[in-house]
Amino acid sequence: MPIHLIWGDDYEACNRETEKIIQTVIEPSWKSFNYSQIDGNDPKQNFRALEEVQSAPLGSGGRVVLVRRSPFCNGCSIELANKLEQAIKLIPDNTHLILYNSNKPDKRLKTTKLIEKNIKSNPFSQEKSFILPLPWDINGQRNLVKSILHQLNLKMNYETIDLIVESIGNDSSLINAELQKLSLFSETIDKKLNTNEPREISKELVKKLIQNNSTNALEIANFLLKEERIIALNKIQSLLQNGEPALRLITTLTGQSRGWLWVHLLDSQGNQDVKEIAKFAGIANPKRIYVIRKQIQGKSLESLLTLMKKLLKIEAAIKSGINPIDSFKDNLLTESKILTNN
């Protein structure tokens, strides 16, 4: 009766862990019979999940029942809790129950205690958490890059890792996608006989494939800061047409905007320690603080907040399925001025 409790806001890492369990447990040719995905927001489906986990798999391999947005450790009805207590004793050894929720399990709940008891007593059960580091947690972002490098059997020196952090930030999905592209490109130019040995990704390759696009995005941010919105939109459209992922572009823009806000705010409070400012702003290289100070000279905090709000609205629009270029146009051109000088 293996139970896998997976939680955290790093959706990419949670999905990778879930997929790894599915591939390990289920025989591919029997997946259509032995795999169920349940929406935990639907009470009826939760009861259905507890019925299905009591069934042994068909054919060879094991069975997996995945409950996304699982309520079992984050607040569920008494009826559902009682049903779990009955079902947990009847789960076959080769049927795996995966419970996933972005929120941390509530240790006070009876159901959480029951699941944790199962995890401790069953060597095939597990609890794993995947938490994205905060934008100002540079060491956390470095560790995130290191973790994905390890999963992809890659390695980098510290300077190259910092370059990834500075270019992408804490977006686990983008880091994973970019590192996979770097791995493929590196493999074509440096074929190794020993495939088990981690492949090293050079700083020069990162600059060539990642930082160039990031630099373009930073140029766009500077045009927005100077109120040159039409030029910025033309460059945005050009980048998107050339295959630049819209979410990576908006991530870079919001990261730059967030840095401007933090530096302006801390400077206005009299903080002159560039290392401390860089830590709060989520900037890997403290020397960038001097550049940012020159960029935002004469800009008001209100104007920077206005730009940040627009960028966040663009990100929300893109994630909701609106065409990326329309999202940029609709939000950047809604007012006659998006920035004002002091």
Results as ranks from 00 to 15, higher is better:
Lys337Val: 08
Leu249Ile: 01
Leu339Asn: 02
Leu333His: 06
Lys146Ala: 10
Ser186Tyr: 10
Gly255Thr: 02
Leu179Ile: 06
Ile231Val: 13
Ile164His: 00
Val145His: 00
Cys14Arg: 00
Asn122Ile: 10
Pro57Asp: 03
Ala81Trp: 09
Asp267Val: 04
Lys208Ala: 13
Lys310Ser: 14
Leu132Thr: 12
Asn323Glu: 14
His96Pro: 14
Lys319Tyr: 06
Thr252Met: 07
Asp42Ile: 13
Gly8Ile: 11
Asp39Ala: 05
Phe72Cys: 03
Lys104Asn: 13
Tyr11Glu: 15
Phe223Thr: 01
Lys208Cys: 12
Pro324Tyr: 01
Ile201Glu: 13
Ile131Met: 15
Ile236Cys: 04
Asn103Lys: 14
Ser183Asp: 10
Asn170Lys: 05
Leu90Phe: 05
Val274Met: 09
Asn82Ala: 15
Glu27Ala: 15
Leu249Asn: 00
Gln237Thr: 07
Leu154Asp: 01
Glu315Gln: 13
Val206Ala: 14
Ile292Met: 13
Asp106Gln: 08
Leu224Thr: 01
Ile230Gln: 13
Asp273Val: 04
Asn216Arg: 00
Asn234Lys: 12
Glu85Pro: 03
Glu197Phe: 08
Glu51Ser: 09
Val263Trp: 00
Lys287Cys: 12
Ala221Ser: 12
Gly321Gln: 07
Phe124Pro: 06
Arg69Gln: 15
Val274Gly: 04
Lys279Leu: 08
Ile22Thr: 11
Leu339Gly: 06
Pro245His: 01
Glu187Gln: 14
Ile189Met: 15
Ser202Pro: 14
Leu307Pro: 11
Pro43Asn: 07
Ile296Val: 07
Asn342Ser: 11
Ser300Lys: 04
Ser300His: 01
Glu127Pro: 10
Phe280Arg: 09
Asn34Met: 07
Pro123Arg: 11
Asn74Gln: 12
Asn213Arg: 03
Asn139Tyr: 07
Leu253Asp: 02
Ala177Val: 01
Lys89Gly: 11
